[in-house]
């Protein structure tokens, strides 16, 4: 009886392990580089310009157009995940694709806003996805095929 119980326990454990139901993970991810510590303090809004920023921080990750000029964003990702999981594979799906959009959403760093004369106006720090979108300028675009067309010039 005792032997049967041990056998069943071992069999259950083997099934769980073989099916990939139990897992312990430790993952670390580094992408790009945030601005060096103390570097942003060297920039003075109202005084520093784009050339100063590029010389100090190098090439940004992104450049955006804003209503008052433009913005450049620096950022990086540094995460560590440790965890254990137990799953019951009722259905199986595999996604081997790499989504840059997902990575972009987790980047942390700084966004520097400039006026049209390349002068630094504002420096904001934090998650990049939270900083620029509300300040982006919407560019004019053609209306889709829903019956609305760009207005044509009148004759005469």
């Amino acid at each position: 009886m005792k032997r049967t119980g041990s056998f069943l326990a071992a069999a259950c454990l083997a099934v769980l392990l073989g099916g990939g139901c139990l897992s312990v993970t430790w993952r670390r991810e580094h992408r790009f580089q945030r601005p060096p510590r103390g570097s942003l303090a060297k920039l003075e809004p109202g005084t520093s310009d784009l050339a100063d920023c590029l010389a100090l921080l190098g090439a940004p990750l992104f450049v955006y157009e804003t209503p008052d000029g433009f913005a450049i964003a620096y950022g990086g990702l540094a995460t560590t995940d440790r965890g254990a999981s137990a799953t019951l594979p009722l259905s199986r799906s595999v996604d081997a694709s790499f989504s840059m959009r997902d990575v972009d959403r987790r980047l942390r760093g700084a966004v520097l806003f400039f006026d049209e004369d390349y002068r630094l106006m504002i420096v904001r720090r934090g998650l990049l996805r939270r900083l620029p979108p509300g300040d982006r300028r919407e560019r004019p675009r053609l209306v889709g095929d829903d019956g609305m067309r760009p207005r044509q010039g009148r004759d005469g």
Binding site: L17, L22, S23, V24, T25, W26, R27, R28, E29, H30, R31, F32, Q33, L54, G58, A59, P60, L61, V63, I72
Partner: peptide, 16 residues
Amino acid sequence: IVVGLLGTDAHSDRVW
């Protein structure tokens, strides 16, 4: 077996 360890490091050359 059930332990997975993974390190990812990505860097880029960028010019604007």
